[in-house]
């Protein structure tokens, strides 16, 4: 499979002025990774980890201080114009839709901005409206849409020019459970049907579990973990919870660290007692991620 995104030792240093003078802030330090065509990768990390800076560099907004990158075989900083036509972006809290106008007007405008011929734009928009189930919403002013409906329109707006790589920054922020589910489903379809590569930042572990095959974790400007979602859940469990209900009705809940044997612990706990129920539960993904954030280096 070909690699849509190749990042090699990318770094970025900002010069921030404060009362004591100019300070150097190394926002991104030698970040390297590759992303295959048609995969959805979660790019996660705590606030200030360097996620947005990395994405801004990959989308040609920022010039790096060092290293290199190739998006769809293009250098983001030297071939910026060509790249703009081949990548898309949704930034959760920044709208590209005209607030007082129906979303259709914004779609037409975006198609023009990307120099798509009218006929072609109509075909693409109709297809996206159908896939994202926007038929009833498309002629309503954007201001009258719910947040979830608006986000569906935002995603459509970013797909009109058929980008091969899509950068999503918190696409489900502020949405209710149902709307989140729908957005995830639609994005999954986009990856499956169109082979779009997605690099997504999100603090919502649901997005990561339901959408992404791979996780890139960044902290203090460095990639600290690059693994599959399944492997992360298995390999980086901070603890497990054993809950036992005995025949006499008493209950015991024990939390064991990941390096302790579940088998041995249960044998020791039970002894000669009879048990009615026993469960071993993994912590939610959120806990796994939180525990990884605390470490400076995982891999």
């Amino acid at each position: 499979m070909s690699q849509d995104i190749i990042v090699d030792n990318l770094s970025k240093t900002f010069f921030v002025k404060d009362q004591t003078g100019t300070k150097e802030v190394n926002a991104v330090k030698s970040v390297s990774f590759q992303i295959e065509t048609g995969t959805c990768v979660a790019f996660i990390g705590p606030n200030g980890a360097g996620k947005s800076t990395t994405i801004k560099m990959l989308t040609s907004i920022l010039f790096p201080s060092g290293g290199s990158a190739q998006i769809l075989g293009l250098n983001p900083w030297k071939e910026r114009r060509q790249l703009m036509y081949r990548i898309g972006a949704v930034f959760g809290q920044r709208s590209q839709l005209w607030y007082h106008l129906p979303a259709r007007c914004s779609f037409d405008l975006i198609a023009s901005i990307y120099d798509i011929p009218d006929k072609e734009a109509r075909i693409r928009t109709t297809d996206l409206i159908h896939r994202f189930d926007l038929k009833k919403l498309i002629d309503k002013p954007v201001r009258s849409l719910s947040l979830g409906e608006r986000m569906r329109c935002e995603i459509v707006a970013s797909l009109i020019h058929e980008p091969k790589v899509l950068f999503l920054d918190e696409p489900t922020i502020g949405l209710d459970v149902e709307a989140k589910g729908l957005i995830r489903e639609l994005l999954s379809d986009q990856v499956r049907q169109n082979g779009t590569t997605i690099l997504m930042t999100s603090h919502d572990t649901g997005d990561i579990e339901h959408l992404c095959q791979r996780v890139l974790m960044i902290n203090h400007g460095r990639v600290i973990l690059d693994t599959t979602v399944t492997e992360m859940k298995q390999k980086y469990l901070p603890h497990q919870e054993i809950s036992i209900i005995y025949d006499d009705g008493s209950e015991q809940i024990i939390r064991i660290s990941s390096d302790q044997s579940v088998n041995k612990t249960i044998r020791t706990l039970i002894g000669n007692k009879n048990i009615r129920n026993l469960t071993v539960a993994n912590p939610p993904l959120e806990d796994i991620i939180r525990s990884l954030y605390k470490k400076d280096k995982v891999v």
């Binding site: 005209w98 007082h100 106008l101 007007c105 914004s106 037409d108 405008l109 023009s112 901005i113 120099d115 002013p141």
Partner: peptide
């Protein structure tokens, strides 16, 4: 050039919705 004309048309439509 077409894109700039479309921006003008969109802004004009926007005004109609902000009577």
């Amino acid at each position: 050039m077409k894109k700039y004309i479309r921006i003008m048309l969109t802004a004009a439509s926007d005004q109609i919705f902000r009577i």
